[in-house]
Design a protein around this nucleic acid. Structure first.
Lengths: 147, 147
DNA sequence: TTAAATGCAAATTTTTTGCGTGATG
DNA sequence: CATCACGCAAAAAATTTGCATTTAA
């Protein structure tokens, strides 16, 4: 993973190393803001722009998967950067990896049928997680933050 | 469709009727901006806020499917508001419905396995459409606009 | 006439960009 | 000393909100 960065000729600075670590250590699919907070615990002067820049680098080398949202901040998956299904709680905004589902059609079949040169796929399931269901009818829960 | 609005107790004003018409008449998955332009051709004083408001109403009654993007504007599908796969060209930003693919797992199976109460699904394939491939190597094309 | 619909403009939020400084090889 | 990393602040872009006015049941 670090090798990919080296290949690209970009330096693995301490800040970037920490960002990589945060990304890989978390299975919570953190947002840029959350990554920023974590990195700042070790490098308090780190700016948001640097986080965005570094994530851009990682996206280019396919080392992080970006999960886009319009209203809210994008979320990032540094553990399984290949496209895979996610389970998204619409209440607490938790995002989980969903291992059980494999999309039926391979990209090649769709490519052949449509003429598109496919580069990526996104499959997300939206719902209410068990914890939020249990809490239902009671008061709302604040969206989660990193531990 | 209009009945759904009536049931909800909201008025079907001329602007809203036009917006519905634009939404259903187009298979291009227009953005709010594009819808706005179209509606303005008939009601020039229409504001963007009204478009956003009305789309919010339609979302609540499940009459329009929102396709979220972070960088760009969201796109809307008023023809097939049920979740279904889309084919998205990353160059010209065209969005097509993809009929051939049916996600393998029914929501119920995933619900049972995960404990989530699922409400929606999103499946998108990203690639370069045949037209943009043909143009490749040449100059870039401007993103499409409504006809 | 009472409530809903709307226009307008300001505010919010996320992400991008420009520029100058500083670190590093 | 030349390049890349970075902080800072401003800029962009999409969406939401507050408020006053118009429309309409």
């Amino acid at each position: 993973m670090r090798a990919s960065l080296a290949e690209k000729g970009v330096a693995l600075t301490p800040r970037r190393a920490k960002l990589l670590e945060v990304l890989v250590a978390s299975d919570r699919h953190p947002s840029v803001g959350e990554i920023h907070e974590e990195v700042r615990r070790y490098f308090p002067s780190t700016s948001l722009a640097t986080i965005y820049n570094t994530i851009e680098l990682l996206k280019e080398t396919g080392q992080v998967l970006e999960i886009e949202f319009s209203g809210a901040a994008n979320r990032y998956d540094g553990r399984i950067p290949q496209a895979h299904p996610h389970l998204i709680c619409v209440e607490c905004e938790k995002i989980e990896d969903l291992e059980m589902v494999e999309p039926s059609e391979p990209l090649e079949a769709i490519s052949a049928a449509t003429g598109y040169r496919l580069v990526n796929r996104r499959t997300d399931y939206y719902g209410v997680c068990p914890q939020c269901q249990a809490r239902e009818g009671g008061q709302q829960q604040a969206p989660q933050s990193l531990p």
